[in-house]
């Protein structure tokens, strides 16, 4: 079993008071709570902080933790010989294969609730699934690895890896949550199966940006296409289409291609917005330069006329 320094996780010394433990937890929970935080790895950080707090806030668990001794974080260790009899309800099982958090969770479970008789609902799982825009359009299937709880022959609940495949329907969007009822962990003693919650995260696309079911595509046009109008080819997720650029178009103008966005769940589709930018050649040929100079002399257009007012 690997040692974890719960006090260091909370930024505390060993003799911290209950009040100091609670304050440290609240401060770190506010920083890392996955429902509120934008910190990188917030979820993992919050799990570490919660695990430490779950043990240290409970006087009995804290005493059990302290009597394990003190080791370096990550160091392999074994509890003292009498530790299991003093604190664990499970008897003399081999603790080598379990995690420190499971050890302390089992202390609480065994102490409280008549664990072996009551129906225990299966665990809910929440997993973030990264898929591409094409997969979101068409629907896809993904393979997931879950660490589910299984009851061993001795009645002890252990974590077991479980592989499942789940179907993601066509029309999902970025940050959407899907609930797959009964696809989580198995229940025990007649308890219902848990649910699986999928958080959809779309991979960034090199061309398209996504807002709900709408797509945005930056479309560079030449100054003469913007001024005179043009018909140009633009990509969509389902192939190229011809789009009309009206004469007198401006940079930043949005042109809508209705129904060319992401598929929606019930058959309709979002829109594709072409956002125009005016591209100018970085190197001008001699004849191009001449024509631009002619245009400068001939044109009375002043885009900064309103500055003078």
């Amino acid at each position: 079993m690997k040692y974890k320094d719960y006090y260091a996780t909370l930024g505390l010394a060993r003799g911290a008071t209950d009040e100091e433990i609670k304050k440290a937890y609240r401060r770190l929970a506010r920083k890392y709570h996955p429902d509120l935080s934008k910190e990188p790895k917030a979820k993992e950080q919050f799990q570490e902080v919660s695990e430490a707090y779950e043990t240290l806030k409970d006087a009995e668990k804290r005493a059990a933790y302290e009597s394990l001794g003190s080791f370096r974080p990550g160091q392999d260790f074994r509890p003292p010989p009498d530790w299991q009899e003093r604190y664990s309800a499970g008897g003399a099982e081999d603790l080598g294969g379990i995690d420190l958090s499971e050890l302390f969770a089992s202390l609480g479970g065994a102490r409280g609730r008549g664990f072996h008789d009551l129906p225990i609902p299966g665990e809910d799982f929440e997993v973030t699934v990264h898929i591409g825009l094409d997969e979101a359009m068409r629907g896809t299937e993904v393979a997931l690895e879950l660490a589910t709880r299984e009851m061993g022959p001795d009645g002890r609940i252990m974590r077991t890896p479980k592989s499942i495949r789940v179907r993601i329907p066509a029309g999902v969007t970025d940050a959407q949550k899907l609930r797959l009822r009964g696809k989580g962990g198995a229940g025990f003693n007649g308890g219902r199966a848990g649910d699986l919650y999928l958080n959809i995260a779309l991979h960034p696309h090199p061309l398209f940006r996504v807002s709900g079911h709408d797509l945005y595509l930056e479309v560079p046009v030449t100054p003469w296409e913007a001024a005179l109008g043009a018909e140009i080819e633009v990509p969509t997720l389902t192939g190229h289409v011809t789009m009309k650029i009206p004469a007198g178009s401006k940079a930043g103008q949005r042109l809508r291609l209705a129904g060319k966005g992401m598929t929606k769940p019930h058959g309709a589709a979002g829109d594709l917005y072409a956002v125009l930018s005016i591209a100018v050649p970085s190197v001008l040929s001699e004849s191009e330069r001449k024509l631009f100079e002619e245009l400068r002399s001939a044109s009375r257009f002043n885009p900064r006329g309103h500055f003078a007012q």
Binding site: R209, S211, Y273, S277
Partner: peptide, 21 residues
């Protein structure tokens, strides 16, 4: 407040979509 933040983030995302890269 969380809903307001999420709504503002959606709005920022939509506006960022319109900006040139």
């Amino acid at each position: 407040y969380r809903e307001r933040v999420l709504e503002l983030e959606r709005r920022v995302c939509e506006l960022e979509c319109r900006l040139p890269r």
